[in-house]
Amino acid sequence: MGYELQFFYVWQNLDKLGQGLLVSLELTGLANLIGLTAGFAIALMLRARMPVLRLPATALVELFRCTPVLIQVVWFFYCVPILFNLFVDPMVMGVLALGLNLAAFNAEGYRAAIQSVPREQYDACAALGLGGWSRVRHVVLPHALRAALPVLMTNGITIFQQSALVALVAIPDLMYEGKMLATETYRPIETYTVVAAIYFAISAPISLIVQRIEARFDRVQA
């Protein structure tokens, strides 16, 4: 016992952790780009009448939601290159795996939000002669986006945390740099605590904002 904390080595290597964090943020940002756009497209496909559209979307969503993210990352990393004879930067694979995972979860969020548009709103549109695209654009979409916002933000921050998994396939993100540093300096407690604190410092404010938004929605609805 009597372990003495020494943060010296961590401070000295803060720039490495910083570089790692940039990679994590890049992964998160790009994954969110895919997640927000592809997620919406998939949500529309989920609601389509034609099975050709609906079934692949359903399969994709269920596959990504019902398997561990770790296997998704590892699968993209090892299997996609072999299957498609595609050898690209590991970052691309990381972004694809996380992005599609997020798209699957966001699609559910969008779908639930679209479903939450009250029937009366559609009736009102019909009564006002609003149809087709203008109905989607001015009534359904604003309502759905507002309703989906907390879920999309929560999913977005979750993928930031899940992005730590790419460390296991040697993408030099924050987690990976932390792991390296912990091994090199024999200072796991200090290193992992600082790394955890960095993840927390970025996640916590956003989840706080989500809570605020949800509280406001609750108040408006009450």
């Binding site: 372990y3 296991l168 992992y192 955890a196 989840s207």
Partner: peptide
Amino acid sequence: ELFRGTPVLIQLFWIFYCLPMLI
């Protein structure tokens, strides 16, 4: 908030590698 705000992987690493040193 701590356990919801950090990756599970780092929680795992912390408990596997750091906790034994501390206790």
